[in-house]
């Protein structure tokens, strides 16, 4: 069991560090790549929670597709490094820090209250597939349509021909 905790702490710290890099790094490409790493480490953490499907999907969808898209867009728009301080006006900086800190405070005092009862994990791909296609069939189809709409929408917005 030592291995799992080690893996967890390793990848957790990895994720946090690279998350900080994401928000602090002036160069967007570097930020995105560090994002890849954070998400990859998250996928590993999913494995430790015994949720391999989610891990696989995370890697396949997130790191594999979405962040590649981000990189493509960054390159397409040729976004340079941010010249001045990555943050804008200081008042907003401190404002946001205070508010986020406040947010964490509230959530934690909420989180402490809930009690967790450990129970046996009966993870199996079949069970997931079954519930996916039985109870949540409707939302499954709905997501299908959502994706279709997103595809059509994205193409139209991005490639709107400038008339006249």
């Amino acid at each position: 069991m030592m291995l799992e905790t080690v893996i967890f702490y390793l990848f957790a710290s990895l994720a946090v560090i690279f998350a900080l890099v994401v928000i602090l790094h002036p160069d967007p490409v570097k930020a995105t790549l560090s994002m890849v790493i954070t998400l990859f480490s998250l996928a590993v953490i999913y494995l430790t929670i015994k949720a391999p499907l989610i891990a696989a999907l995370q890697i396949l969808l997130y790191t594999g597709a979405i962040l590649v898209l981000f990189l493509f867009v960054i390159m397409l728009l040729n976004i340079q490094r941010e010249i001045s301080l990555p943050f804008s006006k200081p008042v907003q900086l401190w404002g946001s820090i205070v508010s986020v800190g406040f947010l964490i405070g509230i959530i934690t005092n909420f989180a402490i209250k809930i009690k967790i009862e450990e129970s046996v994990k009966n993870y199996s791909l079949v069970l997931i597939a079954e519930s996916l296609f039985k109870e949540n069939a409707l939302s499954f189809i709905a997501t299908g349509f959502l994706l279709l709409a997103a595809v059509v929408g994205a193409t139209i917005i991005a490639t709107k021909v400038k008339r006249g």
Binding site: A19, L20, P28, P86, V100, I104
Partner: peptide, 25 residues
Amino acid sequence: LGLILFSIGALGALTRRNGITIFLS
């Protein structure tokens, strides 16, 4: 862990100037 990541994301979103980075956070 989730909470920390969430707050980092929130901070990033609130403070960064570049659209893509906000999106990332």
